Simulated assay, not measured.
Amino acid sequence: MAVGLKKTVVLFGGSGFLGRYVARALAHRGHRIRVACRRPDLAYHLQIAGNMGQILPIQANLRYRWTIDRAVENADHVVNLVGILAENGRQSFDAVQNFGARAVAEAARGVGADLVQMSAIGADANAKSAYARSKAAGEAAVFETIPEASVFRPSIVFGAEDAFFNRFANMARFSPFLPLIGGGTTRYQPIFVGDVAEAVADAVDGKVATGQIYELGGPEVLTFREMMEEMLRVIDRKRRFVTIPYGTASTLARLSRFLPGAPLTEDQVALLKTDNVVSDAAKAEGRTLEAFGCAPRTLEAILPSYLIRFRPQGQFTKPQPQAGGLDAENRDGVA
């Protein structure tokens, strides 16, 4: 733990999955952190990541500008991690990821603070997905307000509390098959949450050029199916894969949209049609994780540390070797 406190950093969305890692990384570097979120009680557990009084949860809501202005008073740096994967009531893509991003940027500019904005690979003003369009609109709003801001676009982020591998590993405990939307051919570049957090902390410390869009991906490019195969290998279970065409998936999502906790939305189906990997332009211009001097960690190195609980006997399961590739039970079924 660093001894001296350096900057006052306001962390919007700090109570979420990525936020807790960013808060920890900033605390270890000696910064004072305000965790701005709608429910401060959900961020109290972060206080033990720093010294006494170093991490302070504070109430803020991106839909109410005065709460944002209050949160950033006397701040040196602002980090906006707020984002949603599905709309819910007033929590719409535009409200959170477009207008919310602009409000945070304007508040940061008002106090002369630097800004890091979290976006996502695939952000595109012309995308078919409303999620991707709102992310692009948020980026544009940020740069229009603070040209020297830093924008991060990670691929799918994994770690102990993720909602991706944990969800499918839990599904594999009960279901005899796992779904592959569109055949599971969409490519991803999964990145460990701790690596993203360290990159954000480096940006706060001024170790990389500002006014850039950084695309963050891990060391491997894998299809959706390959990620599921790796997950099954780690939890030592054999499951069949069932291919669900995009059209069928969209119809199922549309029919289930009024159900509580719907597993998939039409917008997410649209996202699954586009690869989610670092672009060639970002590689050529040095706008990747390598710019931070970080050696990204692999799925093989991290997944066993938290998916072991999904093995048949948990940590006491002795994994069986799988010679000759996939077992017959892991072959495709037909939807």
Rank of each mutant, 00 (worst) to 15 (best):
N51W: 00
G333A: 06
M231N: 05
A27C: 11
A105H: 08
I156G: 04
A262Y: 10
L255K: 04
G50M: 08
N88I: 05
I308A: 00
G247N: 12
G159Q: 12
P296W: 05
A123F: 12
M228W: 12
L303H: 02
F192Y: 15
L289G: 03
G30V: 10
D267L: 08
D332W: 11
I181T: 11
L62V: 09
N330V: 10
M118A: 01
R32F: 12
D94I: 12
R153H: 05
Q97Y: 06
A23R: 01
G286N: 06
A132C: 13
R240K: 13
L26K: 15
F165S: 06
Y214D: 07
G293V: 14
A120G: 07
M228T: 10
L18C: 11
V269E: 03
L115V: 08
G325T: 06
G217H: 00
V277Q: 01
L272H: 10
E300A: 15
F165N: 11
R20N: 03
T251R: 14
Q54F: 09
S92W: 09
Q91I: 00
Q54P: 08
A136Y: 08
N276F: 01
P319I: 07
N74Y: 09
A281V: 15
R237H: 05
S305T: 11
Q189P: 03
E290R: 13
F17L: 11
G138F: 09
R331N: 02
L216H: 08
E220M: 02
V79Q: 01
E73M: 11
Q54A: 10
A281I: 15
R20P: 03
A209M: 14
H31Y: 14
L115N: 03
G16M: 14
F12N: 05
